[in-house]
């Protein structure tokens, strides 16, 4: 089934949901959200795209194989843990960098925890998509 409205609408939705997913990922440290939810939202965006344009089209739009994305995500998560070694801390100790910090304000806090969350994001995104694509293509 090809529907012009769905195809046109899904392009907009994919972009919107991916942006929202990244927003959820970034606000996740102190507020509801985080890598898992963000990954699911981004995956839903591509699932809608796959319904509209077929899994073949969605795979092309994705460029990389979803399982590869998941593997790279696992690599990110592992790297976030290993990062502590460079600062002679224990495995998975959070490392923080405060940009433009003043005594009153912490500035822009960047952390290895965020890298871990990005890893979770990619793992969830990749594995959900690989399952959904496999199920779609089987039928």
């Amino acid at each position: 089934m090809k529907s012009i409205i769905l195809i046109a609408g899904s392009r907009l939705l994919v972009a919107l949901m991916t942006v929202f997913a990244v927003y959820m990922l970034l606000r996740g440290h102190n507020q509801p959200g985080g890598g898992f939810i963000g990954g699911l939202l981004a995956a839903v965006g591509f699932v809608i795209y796959a319904i509209a344009c077929g899994t073949e089209g969605a795979r092309q739009a994705l460029r990389f194989r979803p399982t590869d994305i998941a593997a790279v995500g696992l690599g990110f998560a592992l790297f976030a843990g290993v990062m502590a070694a460079f600062f002679s801390d224990d495995f998975f100790t959070g490392q923080w960098l405060f940009i433009n910090a003043t005594p009153q304000d912490k500035g822009i806090p960047l952390s290895s925890v965020l890298v871990f969350d990005v890893g979770v994001f990619l793992v969830v995104f990749g594995s959900v998509l690989s399952i959904v694509f496999a199920l779609e293509e089987e039928v």
Binding site: T67, D68, A71, V72, L74, G75, L78, D90, F91
Partner: peptide, 22 residues
């Protein structure tokens, strides 16, 4: 000290990721 404990876990995971990409 704790790196001696975590390395036997980190190494297989890292190997798994590289193996999968290759």
């Amino acid at each position: 000290m704790s790196w001696y404990l975590s390395l036997p876990l980190i190494l297989p995971f890292a190997t798994a990721i590289i193996c999968y990409l290759l």
